[in-house]
Nucleic acid binder design. Structure first.
Lengths: 191, 191
DNA sequence: ATAAAAACTTACTATTTAGTAAGTAATCCT
DNA sequence: AGGATTACTTACTAAATAGTAAGTTTTTAT
């Protein structure tokens, strides 16, 4: 009651993000976050007027994250192989955490979201697809990757393999994800 | 109020299934079904004690559906190409209905389900994977399909492409799904 | 024709959820 | 030091959700 926590807002976003990835957007309430944070329900409303505002902020942070990730990897001149490895690693971590990717999770609840949030989700998806496509295109040019499809098509195939791969792993086990992951890499190495 | 509807139970399952595929399992309530069916809330409880029982029945019906589909296609001696076409067609219809596949939808809410339902979902997924794998294996043997991976691995790649493809289409539009669909077929025809 | 079973409705209750208004304690600013 | 601002809490309310108990109508079976 005495000590004031200055990063409550960040914690709310962190917990909210984790809940979406593990239970789904429409499966948690402010009460769940409040309990985990040991604050009252109204404290969440103070930081985010409603659940949609929280979701909006969560997506904004993902957009920022991918933009900085891209900038950073460019800055250090990371190869296409390393860049893609880091990207895939993110999905492997999701499997270990019994979670799915935020985009896949939101896709299920997409029709229940207000237009403003839908548009932000679209922005995020477009960004991620663009970054992966650039990586695949660069890798093809440098000879690191060999694949028959256009970078755009190969990106769609790779992204859907990963996104649904973590969803599947949740149901049938990690082995299926690992099989998919290895096949993705084989395909890019000119299997 | 006078005429008694003998297929209310089937209608509940139909509407429930549609709601899961369009809005997600945790995004609808019995009231939504009751309103669409023009009956009282308690009528839904009469047929299905709780939401989990309804979900359980919905999954059972999918298991039955895929089993009969398999039996029927075997009975008429359908080729691997035709069988797979029919299967893919199901996903294309989902896109047109602004829906996603039931497995993908449930995967998002998976951690909120009781163990009994989780096991049934696993059964369904295993069945679908088995049927597709058999089709791919048969197609490879007959020379209809040419692919470098094992039938099992190719099935995982194909299924994840399709499942996440319809999810993606919901956000970025049908074009991306069509690109994926064409690429899947190219891959099987020895692209 | 009637008893039993099926398919509901009415009428509740308890809990969760989303949200607001008003008050309080800590910190920040000058 | 004093006023404003921030970050909450307490204390509500309104609506949605899940569910039950008891009664009513319709259909089925004998």
């Amino acid at each position: 009651m005495t000590a004031r926590n200055t990063d409550t807002k960040e914690e709310i976003v962190r917990i909210g993000t984790a809940l979406i990835k593990s239970h789904g957007y429409n499966a948690f309430s402010y009460a769940d976050i409040a309990e985990k944070l040991q604050v009252r329900n109204a404290a969440i409303h103070y930081h985010f007027r409603g659940k949609e505002d929280l979701l909006s902020e969560i997506i904004d942070q993902y957009i920022d994250l991918y933009n900085s990730l891209d900038k950073q990897l460019r800055a250090v001149g990371a190869s296409a192989t390393v860049t893609l490895e880091k990207f895939i690693e993110r999905y492997s971590c999701l499997v270990d955490a019994n979670s799915i990717c935020i985009i896949g999770s939101i896709a299920s609840d997409y029709n229940t979201l207000p237009v403003s949030v839908k548009e932000k989700v679209k922005q995020l998806v477009t960004l991620v697809l663009k970054l992966v496509e650039q990586t695949l295109a660069a890798g093809k040019k440098s000879g690191e990757f060999v694949f028959p499809e256009t970078p755009k098509t190969q990106t769609l195939l790779l992204m859907t393999n990963l996104a649904a791969g973590v969803q599947l792993a949740r149901i049938t086990g990690k082995k299926d994800y690992d099989t998919i992951k290895k096949a993705i890499i084989r395909q890019l190495k000119g299997g």
